[in-house]
Design a protein around this nucleic acid. Structure first.
Lengths: 233, 233
DNA sequence: ATACTGTTTCACAAATCTTTCACAAAGCTT
DNA sequence: AAGCTTTGTGAAAGATTTGTGAAACAGTAT
């Protein structure tokens, strides 16, 4: 039995069945909600560790559900959205969602995300957020000393590169949208283009890959970037 | 050779081998103990700088080992715990452990934490031990007599230059921000500009480089300065 | 007062970082 | 597979930050 409580929010019966059957097979403990009101209510009574949330609910807007839950829960939120809802997806991530699945999705993919989220959860719990040292595979960041090491070799990052890396690292596993990142590096409302962000991603990646072949940063086209935990790839 | 004595306390042979092999590769000096009694005994005779301690020992409770050692030693204690010893982990941190690794852990992560601990340790040691002589490549500083030597030649520094050098040396390896340095040399809230700091950096560097080609001080644009350890460049 | 030493300021050169741009590469859509 | 969109990347242009010599300033001893 996996020690993670999951709340599945989905109004489409067949999809709900597919999900719950899969969760059952993998021995996860789960509850179900078919609409937004029920989701929020169940969420507060069950306090789940992870929420699988379909954005297209019949009553409340999925984004509102995220905002509501995020205001008091630190559960990992994985949203489920149809392909042509890219803008909703971004809004959801900015509202506090952690990752997403695009319909139609494979159950393998779903399970992979859930496992990754489980590790992320555990990481957040045990590290109590403000650990002085961040470690992910060959990468380690000593926040106290402003030092970044790859495979034991110190690498030099510019101020913006370092900020970018810290954002990704402190939210490892989570998908960060372009605008979210830009807001935090250049400040809200600054006209800086996404083009600069791309250039920084290039040089950051180049430096991180100097001593290892692996690229810990994944691109989500049309959405943003994500640092993947080494054990998930 | 890294100048840190490490005591590894682990009863599981394969894990012990993994750890010691890794330490050997990175040229750390280490000793081994397979149980709590041995650990405490070796600890008092060797007085290690860092202890890697598995919580699940066959004889004494790991927490007791920590309490015992902490009562007289200031060694950095990094505990190794299995996932199901999570509550013990908290107790261990309360008892005086400094950091922890959860089994299974990667050797990369272990090394990152050991290095971080090393940096912290060095900071604490040199800070409290005023009579220590700092040595880094061709540079040596005798804090007791305020004597600075480069390649065996005594050099004369002004008061501010000396303060600056001491800050860098006592935090060797660490990146120090401009404001941090300024606060410490001129006092907090003093309006002294960063321009002066630059001028001091120039003259300090000039004097340090008088007898050696190497520049031990690295500039981090937009951030501050760092004294790099000679073995790292 | 003068010489001496150390500190701060200033102006400009040098180094480095940031942004922009053009085009290649990769990813989606049909 | 073709066409369109998004992302990656090297290089140039632009903007900032640093480095440095020299001058102005401050304090002390001669």
């Amino acid at each position: 039995m996996n020690d993670m409580k999951i709340l599945v929010v989905e109004d489409d019966r067949p999809v709900m069945n597919l999900i719950t059957t899969t969760l059952k097979i993998h021995e996860y403990e789960y509850s179900q909600a078919a609409n937004g009101v029920q989701a929020i209510s169940l969420c507060s009574s069950l306090n789940p560790d992870l929420i699988l949330l379909d954005l297209g609910l019949p009553d409340i807007d999925g984004i509102e559900v995220i905002r509501n839950v995020r205001s008091w829960s630190s559960a990992v939120i994985i949203i489920i959205s149809a392909r042509d809802e890219d803008s909703d997806k971004i809004e959801a991530l900015d509202a506090g969602a952690d990752d997403y699945l695009t319909k139609p999705f494979s159950v393998d993919e779903m399970m992979a995300r859930i496992r990754a989220a489980g590790r992320r959860m555990q990481y957040l719990n045990t590290k109590s957020d403000e650990s002085a040292v961040f470690v992910n595979g060959p990468l380690s960041i000593d926040f106290a000393s402003n030092l970044v090491m790859v495979s034991g070799n110190e690498i030099h990052l510019t101020s913006n590169e370092y900020k970018l890396l810290c954002l990704l690292a402190r939210n490892a596993g989570k998908v960060l949208t372009h605008t979210w990142i830009i807001d935090r590096i250049w400040g809200r409302g600054v006209s800086t283009d996404i083009v600069s962000l791309r250039v920084y991603m290039t040089s950051l990646r180049k430096k991180l890959k100097a001593y290892t072949g692996t690229d810990l940063i994944r691109t989500h086209i049309g959405i943003g970037y994500q640092m993947v935990r080494a054990e998930n790839l």
